[in-house]
Amino acid sequence: MSHITIDGQVVPFEEGQTIIEAATAAGVYIPHLCHNPEYAPHGSCKLCTVNVNGRNATACTFPAVEGQTVCNNTEELNFDRKRLTQMLFVEGNHFCPSCEKSGNCELQAVGYHLNMLDNHYPHFFALRDLDSSHPDLLLDRNRCIFCNLCVRASHADGKDVFAIAGRGINKHLIVNSASGNLGDSDINVDDRAAHICPTGAILVKGTAFKVPIGQRRYDHHDICDMSAGEQHGE
């Protein structure tokens, strides 16, 4: 079997695997938000940036190749990841104390993992719409980080309910229905797309605050110590 090294650890890989797939199989955590092993890579959040033979690359898109030397858990890369996470926080409107996803949110979990204590940058306070038209689901665009996971999951569901439109501060999640409202789309509460959001942008109604503070997924457990399934909320 072929091998790469990640932070000096020998990691085997199979032909066609990306660096993050090889790392996950070997139990090595590389921070990420837009990556989910179920779907094709998107490479947009950049949190999984690692150093491959002296150059930075996203581990979710970069193929593992025999003999690669990968640096992952370094002070320099983690500092870059903290800055990227801070950018995600200031770009949207992430008010954790009022968010139903708090404690179970992957964006928050990555912030905790990176010991992010402030947001560093000035806030955009972007104007984003909230869509509560669906009987079972809430779409709060304030919390969307454009990871594209709902787009990919809905495509796999065979429905293509979501897409991302616009650029820069006007970038936003759009819904495939005549009115543009989630309630008029084909999405169903049982769809994978309804449960894939790493933040609180797409939530199932009637499930909020069921788990007490202190017992939520990331309250006391660093996401880096979890299995791949647990990291993504399973």
Partner: peptide, 18 residues
């Protein structure tokens, strides 16, 4: 020292910003 969510990101009062 910035103490708490509101000092750090505006917090719930900043939800009026929209």
């Amino acid at each position: 020292v910035a103490v708490g969510a509101c000092a750090i990101n505006g917090g719930l009062p900043a939800m009026r910003n929209s």
